[in-house]
Design a protein around this nucleic acid. Structure first.
Lengths: 335, 335
DNA sequence: TTGTATGCGTTATCAT
DNA sequence: ATGATAACGCATACAA
């Protein structure tokens, strides 16, 4: 993939500069600059002349020069574990929208769920004089913003002390799942979780509601993969079971596949709730009830936080509430 | 979301500049520059002194100044319809890897499958003096690179005349699907397509192989959505049917759901092949046989093309071959 | 309203 | 091996 370093030929041929426009228009470069920053007053006469000449010469102010003199790049770095994960896609959408409406753009780098790659991604971004940055589910955590001044907002529950932070109320998510399952009069519950604080928070909420209703539950620890969900499904069938809450939709899919392979009806015999409301949730048989994270809004909030920071405004953590998306996997048996 | 335009406070506080480092080290700024571009020879004595002082002052060359004098931004614009779509995610991965290994970064903007948004995305990117650009499945087509000099590579089959282009051999994909279905001795075929050239190419290959084998097929036009796939499934059951090729995995999922709802066994009674090998393909019941696009490689190729263009090298279209990923939906009946 | 002049932080050329 | 110094393309304070 990496070929021998090539000659990187001289600066790409440039079009007319501000000087040439000024010369031909018979004005100073200051006036041309003013026209394009339409801040101060320019006589509509000269303005027209300059605009006409500029467009005929194909002139546009160079972002490079502008950035240098202004001391900013209008770039916000974004480190994301995996672009394809639907939740992150929604966040990116929100980030782009907010940033775009403020004249900023997204400099992307993926961490691919590995600490080493995340560090490389950060270095890649830091080479670019970004005005700020957003990191989704950082594995490196606080070690990141060390370089240069801070201004990085984290979208993750991990480092609880962080000032610039957007997170989901995972405990509430667990509560929602438990309530949905209780509503359908189940009795034998199970939680399929994973390592990390997110899963722990979800389980805490789940356990709390069940306890208050006088129920206990069994647990299985997976790793958010479908395979681990299948193991969970198989393992849990050893005992009485009629309701499963999985900390991720992929694991929920795995549980459902395991049940399906053993002829267990969903939701007839066992109800299943997932987490994230990924695109696959509505494509499974039956369609999967899930706890949705408001990804778009979380991304938008992160972007806004970043902008606030740049502008020197005080920032404080934003916490979002999840939402239950009820589908067939907890509803009445489907055809 | 858009608050009142804020004061955008003065240039972020800067650290020590090259001048300060030079002064304290008792050398000229030229020498400091040389140290950080370790191109020419600098006596290891002064080099050490400069490096030590720079790190103690927290100095790093400013990308802004460097970019200005070099006339490039080390940025490649990337316009993608939808970040979440797994195929595009794979492409982005490839793009990032190649670009990153050449010191370039990705400036991201999503088009969200709408022409208007794509144009906004392009404008957003063009504000940044990118050195080049990649656009995946452009809806605007050739209207895009008009502004500034070209240098944009397209990942799409749409404008066949484009010099900088990466595309998939969709016809071959259709052939692969037909061969897989023929291999399993089916007789009553159907194609579920959509508008656009991609679908047309896939159908052509599909039809060609079937014709050579002495078979005909029925057709249904959807729009790549699961819902349209369900309609197709329902409609096609009006006639004899034991093999379906859908131009997208979502439509294939819809077909399978429609069959499932009517008690038709897959693959026992009807075999199904999808396209793209999206993540959902391996999560469905049964797991879906699909035609995989080598997304990572296509992205990598696009990035390489873009780099070549920047370096003034000749570029020519790259065409990739799809690959059959055989799973349960065309295999023997599963448990 | 417009022009002059300075500086932004760096690289690169040409001396030395 | 190192130092002056001239760009790079623009914004802006100040003067007119």
């Amino acid at each position: 993939m990496t070929d021998t370093e090539a000659p990187l030929q001289k600066p790409a041929l440039r079009g007319a500069g501000i000087r040439e426009v000024a010369r031909q228009a018979g004005v100073s470069i200051a006036t041309v600059s003013r026209v394009f920053n339409d801040a101060e007053a320019v006589s509509s006469d000269t303005r027209e002349r300059v605009v006409a000449l500029a467009s005929s010469l194909g002139y546009e102010p160079s972002p490079l020069g502008r950035n240098l003199v202004r001391g900013r790049s209008y770039l916000i770095g974004l480190i994301v574990p995996n672009v394809s994960f639907p939740l992150y896609g929604a966040m990116i959408h929100g980030i782009e929208d907010v940033l775009g409406s403020h004249g900023m753009s997204v400099l992307l780098a993926s961490s691919h769920d590995a600490a080493a790659t995340e560090v490389r991604a950060a270095q890649n971004i830091l080479r670019h004089a970004v005005d700020g940055g957003i990191v989704i589910n950082s594995m490196v955590g606080l070690a990141l913003p060390t370089q240069r001044q801070s201004g990085w907002v984290h979208v993750t529950p991990e480092p609880p002390g962080l000032p610039c932070r957007v997170e989901l109320d995972n405990e509430e998510g667990g509560r929602l799942a438990a309530m949905e399952l209780l509503r359908n009069r189940h009795r034998h519950f199970a939680y399929v979780g994973a390592k990390g604080r997110e899963s722990a928070d979800r389980e805490r909420g789940f356990a709390e509601v069940l306890r208050d209703a006088g129920f206990d539950y069994r647990r299985f620890e997976g790793d958010y993969s479908e395979a681990s969900g299948m193991q969970a499904g198989a393992a849990l069938l050893d005992g009485p079971l009629d309701a499963v809450f999985a900390a991720g939709d992929l694991m929920a899919a795995g549980v459902m596949r395991a049940l399906h392979m053993r002829g267990v009806q969903v939701p007839g015999q066992v109800a299943v709730v997932g987490f994230d409301d990924a695109a696959i949730a509505s494509l499974l048989y039956p369609r999967l009830t899930s706890i949705r994270q408001p990804g778009y809004l979380m991304g938008a909030a992160a972007a806004q936080l970043s902008l606030n920071f740049i502008r020197g405004r005080p920032t404080e953590p934003v916490i979002f509430s999840p939402e239950l998306v009820a589908r067939e996997s907890t509803g009445p048996p489907s055809a």
